[in-house]
Design a protein around this nucleic acid. Sequence first.
DNA 1: ATATAGTTGACCGTAACAGTAGGTTATTTG
DNA 2: CAAATAACCTACTGTTACGGTCAACTATAT
Lengths: 168, 168
Amino acid sequence: MRLTTKGRFAVTAMMDLALRGDEGPVALAGVSERQRISLSYLEQLFGKLRRFKLVDSVRGPGGGYCIARPLSMVTVADIIRAVDEPLDATQCGGRENCIDEHRCMTHELWSTLNAKMYDYLSSVSLADLVARQQEKEASLGAATVLEDRRIGPHPRPRNTRDKAAVAL
Amino acid sequence: MRLTTKGRFAVTAMMDLALRGDEGPVALAGVSERQRISLSYLEQLFGKLRRFKLVDSVRGPGGGYCIARPLSMVTVADIIRAVDEPLDATQCGGRENCIDEHRCMTHELWSTLNAKMYDYLSSVSLADLVARQQEKEASLGAATVLEDRRIGPHPRPRNTRDKAAVAL
DNA sequence: ATATAGTTGACCGTAACAGTAGGTTATTTG
DNA sequence: CAAATAACCTACTGTTACGGTCAACTATAT
Ligand code: FES
Ligand code: FES
C-alpha cells in the first residue's frame, strides 16, 4: 500500500464531506477552499472515488458529492485503495517466485507488514475520524475546520510538492 | 516510511551477509550472484548502509562487508531507514501546520500509522530473520539460498521495474 | 605488479506524483 | 429559453524518486 499526499488529500476531503454531509451534496469548490487543495486535483481524485462507489455525485447548481455509504462502512483503506495506484501484495505480487520460482527470504516479512498496515487502515472508518474530530472541536469550542476562510479569488497554489510520501 | 524494492533489496542483501558472515567479509559480487541484484546497485545501497554504520567494509582481495553489530541489534527498520529517502513523520513533517499553522484533521491518523509500521519493522531483527530462514532450510534439507548458482557471465538484468513500491 | 574489491560520481529511462488548463455535459434557476 | 452552476473528462506539464548502468578511482592482499 502506497502512501502519498494523494491518499491524504482524499481522506481529508472525504472527512470534509462527512462533516458537512447533513446539508446535502458538498461542492468540491468548497472543499478546495476549506482544505486548501487544488480544485482540479480534487476533481481527479473524486473521479476515482466515484468509480469506486465511495461517493455519489449530483450535478448542476446545488450539486456536489455525498458519501455513498454509512460513515462506518467507509474505511481509510478503502479511500486509499481508490485513489492510489493499483497495488499488488509483496514484490512478487503473491507469486512467490522472486528467485528462480522460489519465494525469496523476505517474502513473509513484507507480506506481514502489508497485512499490518492494511489491518490498521481498515480498522479506522470515516465515522471514527469524524467522531474524533468533533470531540476535538467541542473541547476547543471552535469549528475551525468547517469555517470558510476565503482569502483571495483562488485558493493559493500549494508550495509545489511540500512533502511527497509518507514517512517514518 | 517509504517501502520500495530498494529497502527489500537491502534487507535481502543484509540477510545474505548475515547467513554467511561467519567466514569473514562477504563480497558484493557474491551477493549479486546469489540474490540476483545488480552489483552496481548493491554498491550504492551498501554505501548508504556503511554510512549508517550498519556494515563495516574491508577492501582488497578477500575483502567485502561485515555486519557491524550483533544481528539482534540490527532491525529491519534500521536497514530501510538507511537506504530509503530521508523521511520525516507525517506530511507536515511533525510541524503540525498543514492548515494555517493548525494540525490538520488527519495528522493523528498518519502519525499513528507510521508508528505502527515502525513498531513492527523495529520488532524484527536480522537475528529473527536468520533464525526463521535457517529453520526453513533445515526442514527443507537444502541450503537453496546459499548456493552459488552462476548462470552466465553477468547476473541477468532484472526485467526493468518489475514492481515498484509496496503494496496492499 | 597485479588482481581484487570497495568507493565515488555522473548519468539514464521510466513512472508516478502533484498540479494546471480547457473543454463538455447535466441540472437548476431566473 | 438562457445563464449559471458544478460535475466530468482529457490532455498536458514539471518534478522527483526509483532502478539501473558505467567509468574512474583508491586501498589492500598476494
Ligand atoms: S517477495 Fe514474494 S517471493 Fe520474494
Ligand atoms: S499532517 Fe501534520 S498537520 Fe497535517
